[in-house]
């Protein structure tokens, strides 16, 4: 099966029903996408599929093949941060940090279509991403900060 991940083509042989999450983590070796629940209940595994935020634990390999997959590693890097990541760092959002790849991918997908989201729109988009450490107030503030950053260019 052929995957386009963060702009690179990978040819791997996996079961049709292997979740994209495990293709990324165990087959391709991209560990930034996290396993939290495996049942679409936490959002830790969120990636972009053709620009849209999806739960990679619920996306079959065969459904992702041939489409554009973006993971946290493809969104930005420590040297070249995405605006959402900059906002997350400046806001010191992360505690344990384990949920934050998913939170950031979810927020980036929201801001791509809704550059200046209201609190209700943030609620709507981010409601499926669990954070056990309770960083929600910081996440909300960081989404607003990222929106401002992106508009200022």
């Amino acid at each position: 099966m052929q995957f386009r991940i963060n702009g690179t083509v990978h040819e791997v042989e996996v079961e049709d029903d292997m979740p994209l999450l495990w293709v990324l983590r165990d087959v391709i070796g991209l560990k930034g996408t996290k396993y939290g629940c495996g049942i679409a209940a936490c959002g830790a595994c969120t990636v972009h599929l053709d620009g849209e935020a999806v739960r990679s634990c619920q996306t079959f390999a065969s459904d992702a093949a041939g489409r554009e997959v973006t993971t946290i590693e493809g969104l930005g890097s420590p040297e070249a941060l995405h605006a959402v990541q900059t906002a997350w760092i400046e806001g010191q959002v992360a505690q344990c940090g384990y949920c934050q790849s998913g939170q950031i991918m979810q927020a980036a997908a929201l801001l791509a279509v809704t550059p200046n989201p209201t609190d209700d729109e943030i609620d709507e988009a981010m409601g499926g991403n669990l954070c056990r450490c309770g960083t929600y107030p910081k996440i909300r503030a960081a989404v607003h900060a990222a929106a401002t950053k992106m508009q200022e260019g």
Partner: peptide
């Protein structure tokens, strides 16, 4: 800036 904050905001931790 917390020493792990960049890694935790870029999926590299």
């Amino acid at each position: 800036e917390r020493i792990d904050i960049r890694a935790k905001s870029t999926g590299t931790q």
